[in-house]
């Protein structure tokens, strides 16, 4: 009896040995790092690293191949850009197509900040137009409101 239990125990303890601990292929990691900066050409703004489309899979395979062939990151990116244009870059380029995009927020912030500053400075302790006297209509309104409030007080008593 005890022997049977012992054998069973040993078998159970051995089980984890058969299960493999898998780690990510370092090449896969490199592939994904480059894929992250490339846009899947048929998806909506998704990087190649995240998309499940066929094209994205193919692109990842190509990146992997080129990495295995020893190509550098720049060369691989250039490979795709020469085929798909700047469209395939996740980040807009700094050239003439993308300059406005990168500059505009800075310029806009500066412009609005200056505008805000000027507004605040110009409105500082400004001469204000005199407040108009109460119109007849307003007087009548106040009177009836007062009357209504008085009536309410009376009713509550």
């Amino acid at each position: 009896m005890a022997k049977r239990f012992l054998i069973l125990l040993c078998l159970m303890l051995m089980a984890p040995v058969f299960a493999a601990e898998v780690a990510e292929d370092p090449l896969e990691r490199q592939t994904l790092a480059i894929a992250k900066d490339l846009r899947c050409a048929v998806c909506q703004s998704q990087p190649v690293s995240e998309s499940n489309s066929d094209l994205a899979r193919d692109m990842r395979a190509i990146i992997r191949e080129q990495l295995e062939a020893g190509k550098s990151r720049e060369e691989i990116v250039e490979y795709f850009v020469s085929r798909y244009g700047n469209y395939v870059l996740m980040k807009p380029p700094y050239d003439e197509t993308g300059t406005l995009l990168w500059l505009a927020p800075v310029l806009l912030l500066a412009a609005m900040a200056i505008g805000g500053w000027l507004f605040l400075r110009n409105r500082k302790n400004v001469e204000l137009p005199p407040v108009a006297a109460l119109s007849e209509e307003d007087r009548a309104r106040i009177k009836s409101a007062e009357q209504a409030a008085r009536n309410e007080d009376e009713a509550e008593k």
Partner: peptide, 28 residues
């Protein structure tokens, strides 16, 4: 808000005006 609008509409405008396509996405 203006920046988000710019980033969203810029690729459309660029494509319409010059035909070149760029991607404006999360990194921007």
């Amino acid at each position: 808000c203006a920046t988000v609008m710019l980033g969203t509409l810029y690729p459309l405008a660029l494509d319409a005006l010059t035909g070149s396509k760029i991607t404006v996405a999360a990194p921007y």
